[in-house]
Each structure stands twice: as C-alpha cells, then as structure tokens.
Design a protein around this nucleic acid. Structure first.
Lengths: 250, 250
DNA sequence: CGACGCGTTGATATGGCTCAAGAGTGGTGG
DNA sequence: CCACCACTCTTGAGCCATATCAACGCGTCG
C-alpha cells in the first residue's frame, strides 16, 4: 500500500526542466520571492528548476530527507498526517504561491501529496539556505509566510475542535472561494471548483465522506450552492454561506 | 463578563519591575535568546522589563495593539479563540521559554490568558524589532520557534480532528509530562501537576469537562495515573499511557 | 460491456454532549 | 471554630450529531 515517494520523484526528475522568466511568473508577487528586487530575483532564477506531478502523486513522504524546497506554481497539494491504524487528517492545503519545506530543517513530519496536477518551482535546499543568509527580503518573507500558516492552522484548530459539520463545510467553501478568487483576481461570483474529492474534503475537515456529501446536498437543496457538476459550483447565496460558517460577522 | 485586558495590564505596569541578570535566567538557553552571545544578551537586557499576572488574568485581547512581545519566564498561559455564540477552543499553551507576539505584526488573532500565575520577560516591540534586524541569532531563533509552533499546531489538528476522547487525554498528559520534565530536567517518574482545570483541559482538547473528568477517572481506575489530589498526579504506567495516545510507537 | 472510482442515500449504532444532581474543597466572615 | 458559599469536580441518565455499514447510481476507461 505504501508507495515510496522516490519512485515518482525520480520520474519527475526526468521531466524536461524548462525555466521560465521569474518576472513573468504568475506567483511572482505572492510567493517567497514577493519582496525580491530584480537582482535578487536573478539569483533565485539561477538555482530554480521546475517540476511537475500528476494528481495523486506523492511528492514528499514523512521523514524523507528534504533536498529541495519549493513554491507551488500551479495546482493544489495537501499536507497529511496518518495514524498507525490508518486514520488520516489533512493539516494543510497548498495553493499556488504557497511554500514547501523549511529552512534549517532537514525533514518534515507529514506527507505532501499532489491533489491536482501540480507544478513546483524548486530550489535546492543548500544553495537556497545560503541565499537566505545574504537576502533579508527572502528571510522576512519566509517568516511572514510561516506566521500566516500558523494563523491558518489555529483557525483550523477552532474548526476541528468546535464547529459542526455544516459550519465546517461552509468555512471550507469560503476559504476555497477566497483562494481561488485570489488566483484569478477579477470576476467575483464566478464558477468555483472543488479540487478535492469528497473523501479528501472529509479528511481536511475531520469528518467522513458521507457527512460531507450530505451537507453539500443540503446546501444545494437550500439554494446556497448551485452545482454545475460534482466538482464545479457557484455560491448562490453568499450571506447564507457566511452565516452558516459560524465566523464573526465582521 | 468581558473584562478588558487593559485594566489588568495597567495594574501590572505598576508592579515593581525588577531586572534580573539574563545570564542567570532559568530560560536562558531555551527562549528566544537561546543563541545569543554575551554581547547580544546585554542588548536584550537593556530593553527588557518583567511583568507578572495572576492566574485568570487576561494578558492580551484579540485585536489589541501589541506594544510588547515577551517570553514566558514562569507559569502557563493559554491562547484561545472564541466564537460568537460562546464556544471556545484553546489553540495553544505557553510554557516557560515560549514566546508571545510576532515581529512585523501589530495584532494577534486570539486571546492570551494567564492560566497560572505568570511572569513575563517583556520587550517593547519597536526596539525589539530593530534589534532583530541587526541580530541574526534572534531572527533565526524566532523562525525556529515559529516552525516548532507550527509543527505543534499540526499535531494538535490531528488530535482534534481524529482522536478519541481517551487518546486526546493520553496525548495531553504525555505533552504535559514532556514540558514539565523539561523545566526540571532531572527526576523522571516524578509528580506532575495539571496546571489547567477540567474545563480548560476540555477546551484545549475539543471536549467537554464531563468527558475529561470521566476519562481521567477511567485512567485512574485502570492504574495508568495515580492522583495525589485533583491537580497533582503521577504516571503509574508509562507504556499504557503511550499506547492510549494513538501516537506512533517509535 | 464490465469494472472501477466516485458519489449519493438510507438504516442503524455510538461516542461524546447535554442536562441535572450532588459531593469535595477552600475561602470568608461571624 | 464552624457555617456558609462559591467553585470545581464527579457521576448518572438520556439524547443527538455524526460515524458506520450497506446498497446502489452514474461516468469513465479499458
């Protein structure tokens, strides 16, 4: 059952490694490089390589040595923890511009899996860490991103510990809408996509897939969400969705 | 019901602000200053002030301006989130050496409350941030501590989302034992203290106080824990406790 | 066409919550 | 020193939201 990450990893290594210009990168102003000036960007450009993964591919396995750190350029990846008896909990979702890997840490304590097809902008860890030393813009941005993740993790703790199934779903949809509208910064009220299966959503929310299915069904029936197909939908009633999330009204 | 933090804050301001030597500080080698050399320590010593809070005192309120950042010198503090209808979830526990406040962030998104009597080593935020710029040892340590917190938050997400009441309690006791033995680094198998009430434990674990009480009672009956009084206890069977935690055996 | 992955829906079980009563414990004031 | 009160904790009984178990539908792909 346990497929070692390395098989896929090696395969990915063989991909043609094109190297687009950083200045034209879609995540240029949100990723770890956000604050870099042109000179610094050039330094990064020299040590970066692109790498892609198919939906479902394991990207990094718990305890694996981290030879690379990376930014998600496109696609969605999950951070997941598994217990001995097979219970699993997703502890993070990575969208474009999010960062994988930790300076000064050789390993991670969870699995990283490609949820959709994913493209990464990878930096070899050693040169990247060296670059941090001399580039405060990157160190600052890394710190900021770590703190953002910490805030997000704590919001999720509230969700996991205290919210009802319905509130969890509503909060999840709102989060999703926020992240997807960030990517294509215009057109509000647009069509959204669930990048995760019912099982994965359940996994993220501390529920079962049946409960997720029922709650989504209920919100559809109530006219809060309208589904185009199983994955694509629109938020038909933004206020009702927010009211159902249990979050502050402000 | 909502007591503004500032009342207590002002009161604390009036406390005599003794300023012990950093070199003799009990958290010298674990706190944000862990990597500082003697010169750097001296810099910190000049901008630090001590401040104490009584058990139950609010220390910082969600959204409050952060004029100070601080290390916990003694005592235990909690980070808590509250929903509109009053449901609450603790999202972190601060033990001696833990850090409060974020460089580059003017506010926090949760409440900080003294669980026991607490002494803080406070640094005014502006001078502290200036010091970070010139002192990589502090910046590095801050990053490391933020990443440790992130790891802890993710472990807690697994606990909140997937563990049973019994596993939650067992995991909590193990965490507590680890942190308390760190503080007095010798004598294993010693007497431990629950710094939190049943209600607060429940709050941390995403349970109700009744469930906490029942589970602790069960573990007592099974001979895993032996209680001296309601707060003080000993782990009578370390293996059984760990087996009950649901964590990996390694 | 069959099989498989994914999702829906229904029936039933159950862990932990809710509500309620009462027992320790510690502090306070007469 | 005792009586009383407030607070914390324990214990019991019943209930409910969500899990679990099970059957089936619908697309897609070989």
């Amino acid at each position: 059952m346990v497929v070692r990450a390395n098989e896929r990893y090696d395969q990915a290594m063989l991909d043609l490694q094109s190297r687009p210009k950083c200045s034209e990168c879609p995540i240029r102003h949100r990723a770890v490089c956000a604050r870099c000036d042109d000179d610094e960007l050039l330094m990064l450009e020299q040590i970066k390589t692109y790498r892609s993964f198919k939906a479902g591919d394991p990207m990094l396995w718990r305890g694996d040595g981290l030879t690379y750190v990376a930014s998600v350029v496109s696609g969605v990846a999950s951070l997941g923890k598994t217990m001995e008896d097979g219970r699993t909990q997703m502890v993070g979702l990575l969208f474009p511009s999010d960062f994988i890997g930790r300076p000064g840490r050789a390993a991670i304590d969870f699995d990283v899996v490609a949820v959709t097809d994913v493209t990464l902008c990878c930096f070899q860890r050693k040169p990247f860490e060296a670059l941090i030393e001399t580039t405060p813009h990157i160190a600052q941005r890394l710190m900021e991103m770590a703190l953002d993740e910490l805030d997000a993790a704590r919001d999720w703790m509230l969700l996991l510990g205290r919210k009802t199934a319905r509130e969890k779903i509503a909060t999840f949809i709102e989060m999703l809408a926020r992240r997807q509208q960030l990517a294509n910064a215009d057109t509000p009220g647009q069509e959204l996509v669930l990048p995760l299966t019912r099982y994965e959503i359940a996994n993220y929310l501390g529920l079962t897939l049946e409960t997720v299915s029922r709650q989504l069904g209920a919100m559809k029936k109530e006219g809060i969400l309208s589904f185009v197909d199983r994955r694509r939908f629109r938020v038909a009633n933004v206020e009702a969705l927010h009211a159902a999330s249990g979050d502050d009204s402000d």
